[in-house]
Amino acid sequence: MHPDSPISATLVAWGNAWLAGHVGLDEAVDRLERAAGPQVVSTEVTETPLRGFLADLRVEGMTALRLSLPAPGDPLGLTGPPPFTMAAVDAGQAATAVLPGRCLGLVPSPDLRGSSYSGVRWTLMEARAAVPDVPGLADAEHELTSAMRSATDALLSVDGPREGQPSIRTADDGLAPGYPPRAHRVAALTARLASVLRLADERGLTSGQIAVRGQALRDLDRAVRRARVAAHNAIVEARQGPDTLARRARPDSAQQRGG
């Protein structure tokens, strides 16, 4: 699985584009299979091709797919329960299918069989039917810009050996048809910054210099993950509108009173 385009992000982007009517199911699944090979969804007792699994969820009323890009100590995009959270943190990614009154978690892992079969196995898990604490696209873009500035200032203050400038390729933003232009812009920037983070090198630095650089890169990594989640959620955010999302994100007055 390519680190610039986690398979969970691809599932969420193309799955949401399909749910919004911008692409067909076959096109969405074909895009996933081109990225990482055959895809199956498994439980303790069953194994279902991803194509059929998504079709069944659509019949059940699935309205959206949400992206999670957690890290240890930062369960970004997750709402529990603990088994799903732990599995997603271990994988560094997950997707959540939103259905009426419930959610289902999907955690990917390599699926290797014999010498020639290489694909993805999605482990199906229960997920809490709650709205995760993730930023909207505008807030995430602002946070990413701020983190970029802070990281640049911190890294420029660290003297160390230089062996030429690394080449950063232009990365695919990973989104699908139907996403707003701002989401494409933010996703493309996060893909490029993810390349920068992978190429960051600490060789030849003192422990103090490593600490300065490490903190700057951790802050940037957090902002990149939050912006990528926001970009992949943007098609759902645009479809539902800010008022709907705000109502979902807070309890109503009866719940606040315990009613």
Rank of each mutant, 00 (worst) to 15 (best):
G77A: 09
W14C: 02
L11P: 06
E60Q: 15
R51G: 02
A191F: 06
L69G: 10
W14Y: 15
Y117D: 04
L11N: 11
P161Y: 03
R58M: 06
M62R: 14
T152M: 09
L217D: 08
G241Y: 08
D133P: 00
S8M: 04
L220D: 06
E44C: 02
G73A: 05
G101V: 11
R185G: 04
A238E: 15
A71W: 02
P72Q: 07
A138N: 07
T206I: 04
L67C: 09
I235W: 05
L19S: 05
Y179Q: 02
L137C: 11
D159N: 12
Q93T: 15
G160A: 05
P100V: 13
V98Q: 09
G15L: 03
D201F: 02
I168K: 02
L205P: 05
G214K: 14
R198T: 14
V12A: 00
Q255G: 06
E141W: 09
T43I: 04
V41H: 00
P82H: 07
T190M: 10
G52H: 13
P70Y: 04
Q255I: 10
P100W: 05
R121C: 11
P242A: 14
V98N: 01
A95T: 04
P166H: 09
A234F: 04
T170L: 13
E27H: 14
T79K: 00
R239Q: 10
S116L: 08
L205H: 10
C103M: 10
L19R: 07
T152R: 07
L99E: 07
G114A: 08
V29H: 01
V131F: 10
L99K: 12
P108I: 00
V89P: 01
S115V: 12
L25P: 11
A254F: 13
R239M: 04
R182S: 15
V40K: 01
F53Y: 15
R192A: 13
V186M: 13
G178M: 03
A13L: 05
S109M: 04
S253K: 08
P75S: 06
T190I: 12
L175R: 05
Q39N: 12
A151M: 12
S116R: 15
F84R: 05
A55P: 02
L54G: 05
I168G: 04
N233A: 10
F84G: 03
T170W: 07
M125W: 01
H2A: 09
S116K: 08
D133G: 02
E163H: 15
S109K: 12
V134C: 04
A188Q: 12
A223I: 07
D90C: 00
M86L: 13
H2Q: 11
G178Y: 07
G174K: 07
G204P: 09
P81V: 10
A216Y: 08
G61I: 11
L217P: 00
R102F: 09
R185P: 00
E33W: 02
G105S: 08
V134N: 01
G208C: 00
V12P: 03
P81D: 07
A223Q: 03
V229W: 03
A71Q: 14
L217F: 03
E143H: 10
D252T: 01
W122V: 07
R31Y: 01
A97G: 08
G174V: 11
I210W: 02
G15D: 02
E237H: 12
